[in-house]
Design a binder for these strands. Structure first.
Lengths: 112, 112
DNA sequence: ACCTGATATATAGCATTGCTACTTATGAAC
DNA sequence: GTTCATAAGTAGCAATGCTATATATCAGGT
């Protein structure tokens, strides 16, 4: 995948990955890789800073734990994060319809 | 629309806007605004530098003309631009399927 | 003992990219 | 003569994801 394509949509993807339940960064990477047949294989240098950003924004909360001798930081959605995810999902539908329309040269269906 | 959402997809949208025939920057803005019911209203500070980038990349060629006393720079797709557009359309389909899958928490359909 | 690979997190610095704000200029309308 | 639509441009900014690198633990093989 081209690098810049994900820009502006990573947060939504990460929030969605945490929707089923709390996960730590490494598990998020694995989960995304699995669900996309290996096509979305995000580097750690992308994931960890992004999760920190989301935490600082109050959309997720993290807590340390140790499993099998290795420390983990497990993140879960906050109420604000759940709301943000709902909004971002709507944004995505709107946005993707718009780009699809633009690429196909037909007028864009108005939202809702 | 959130500002960062378009990142990485503007080029494809612009190339597509030039597919029907040559257009100048201002007309591209108008055209996109019309086709999206006003939702994609790109500022000139976005369009003009982007068209220059595409020209420098050899995907479009521009030529000056004067219409009604006002100078225009009219752009048309090159052969490379047409090829690039085909590729970018495929990229978009792949990418949007992936993000949609990620946001809906279901596994991603493999491409083709 | 040693090495490799998977697990797990982190950061500095970079490159790209679209936007804001501003400038310049013409023609039409009032 | 002022305002608005048309038309193009630039400087500088902010955001964001990536590369490269570092640290550390544990399992498995030799």
């Amino acid at each position: 995948m081209r690098a810049e394509e994900l820009k502006g949509h990573l947060d939504a993807v990460l929030l969605a990955a945490l929707e089923d339940g709390p996960r730590h960064g490494y598990a998020v990477i694995e989960s995304l890789r699995q669900n996309t047949g290996g096509r979305l294989d995000l580097p750690t240098g992308t994931i960890y800073p992004a999760l920190r950003r989301l935490e600082q924004a109050g959309l997720i909360t993290g807590s340390w734990s140790v499993v099998g001798g290795r420390r983990r930081r497990e993140y879960r959605l906050t109420a604000a994060g759940t709301r943000a995810l709902t909004g971002k999902r709507a944004d995505w539908l709107d946005f993707s319809a718009m780009v699809s329309a633009a690429l196909e040269g037909r007028p864009c269906p108005s939202p809702v």
